[in-house]
Amino acid sequence: MIDPDLVRTAEPARHAISWTTRDVLLYQLSLGASDLSFTYERGLRVLPTFAMVAGQGISAGDRPARGLDLPGIEIDLAKILHSGQALTVHRPLPTAGSATVTSRVAELWDKGKAAVIVLENDAADDYGPLWTSRMQIWARGEGGFGGSPGPESSWSSPDRLPDHVLDSPTSPTQALLYRLNGDRNPLHVDPAFAVQVGFDRPILHGLASYGIVAKALVDGVLDGDPTRLVSLDVRFAGTLFPGETIRTSVWREGNHLTLAATCPERDDAPVLSHAFAEVTP
């Protein structure tokens, strides 16, 4: 059930997070990184998408992950789907640190048979803003409350060959490692559970694909410098099974990148769509 009036008038929630260099190393290893600049603490560089798991990894111990605990929203978690993710980093992320995260529902859209909840998180430390993320959550059966359907969305790739095509093979055990960043949903590891919810076998985390694409852009377009990747905005268009490849096509116009990520083993089935990135020169 969604109470739109309560959602709109709710005060933002705040919570503290912290992370260590070990959390960063694990995250980047779980994306398949092997170069020392991302896997060795000496001279360590941090992918901006680490923001998606900061405060949730091995340093957090076995504390339960934060669920969808939002005023005015009571939804069975089995009915929700992480349908999109946007991230903007305001400065390079430190290899270890702490921050305060302020969360609020930024948008609530009525799609008729479903609702879309846009959850915005702003993280800041003692030196100022670190990142802003916007997560789109698709809630089946929760529409019909009389709200706005939200903006029309259209996307198409430029009518020319991509400037870069980046292949990122994944490992059959990729999800086993990635889940140690905090998302231990059995969908990504338990074959019986995956079949129960409609998949042939466990699927890779959407945010793992998101991070893998970010790493591909850093390596293949940005000369290995993660500080040049300022924002990444995607829709999760399809599943990827561990062991398959993510093929990222990149069209560049100045500092703006248009992206499409597909799975070549399944006739370029879509993985990420409506995808854009902003970079520095």
Results as ranks from 00 to 15, higher is better:
100 T>N: 01
106 A>E: 12
168 S>P: 06
164 H>M: 03
143 G>W: 06
134 R>E: 13
140 R>T: 11
168 S>A: 10
87 L>Q: 09
95 T>P: 09
101 V>W: 06
136 Q>T: 15
118 V>T: 05
158 P>V: 03
96 A>W: 00
122 D>M: 11
143 G>I: 06
125 D>E: 05
105 V>D: 02
89 V>D: 02
155 W>F: 15
120 E>C: 08
151 P>C: 01
88 T>A: 05
170 T>C: 04
162 P>H: 11
149 P>T: 04
101 V>K: 11
117 I>K: 05
97 G>D: 12
133 S>V: 03
159 D>P: 11
127 Y>I: 15
157 S>A: 13
131 W>H: 09
130 L>A: 05
132 T>G: 02
161 L>Q: 15
140 R>S: 14
144 G>H: 06
101 V>N: 06
103 S>T: 07
160 R>S: 10
122 D>H: 05
102 T>G: 00
99 A>L: 00
86 A>S: 14
87 L>F: 07
173 T>F: 14
161 L>M: 14
150 G>M: 02
116 V>W: 04
145 F>M: 08
142 E>V: 12
105 V>K: 09
146 G>K: 00
156 S>D: 11
106 A>G: 05
172 P>D: 09
135 M>A: 15
129 P>K: 03
136 Q>D: 15
86 A>K: 15
112 G>E: 03
86 A>R: 14
117 I>C: 10
139 A>W: 01
102 T>Y: 08
139 A>Y: 05
166 L>S: 12
96 A>N: 05
118 V>D: 06
139 A>D: 06
131 W>L: 10
120 E>F: 00
156 S>I: 04
90 H>G: 07
118 V>E: 09
159 D>T: 08
151 P>I: 06
128 G>K: 01
114 A>C: 07
136 Q>H: 12
153 S>F: 10
135 M>W: 08
96 A>K: 12
139 A>M: 13
107 E>Q: 13
142 E>A: 15
170 T>M: 09
110 D>K: 10
134 R>V: 01
98 S>W: 07
140 R>I: 00
157 S>F: 07
134 R>N: 09
111 K>P: 07
169 P>Q: 08
130 L>V: 02
164 H>N: 13
123 A>C: 00
151 P>W: 02
143 G>L: 08
167 D>I: 04
103 S>E: 14
132 T>E: 06
132 T>D: 01
